[in-house]
Amino acid sequence: MTESPDVLDCRGQRCPLPVIALARRVPTVPVGAVVRVLADDPAAANDIPAWCRLRGQEFLGAVEADDATGFDVRRVI
């Protein structure tokens, strides 16, 4: 996958908050960088890839962690 991505800890946040946090963070990282959203809301698994599709960013996949899932997004535009 990727080396030490920028991690956004959104554990305990309900949708759409993790998606909003992601949308705020992505423009602040360089093109090509990866942001990992750590979320435990069940809607995140659906809405983060959907956001990537709507915004033209690349969804790299999900990584299971102890108490949450990490969703990796690469800024491409």
Partner: peptide, 16 residues
Amino acid sequence: LRPSHVLEAMGVLSHG
């Protein structure tokens, strides 16, 4: 507190 399984199956935005 789960999103609609229909919206999930389609892969479309489920919030709002």
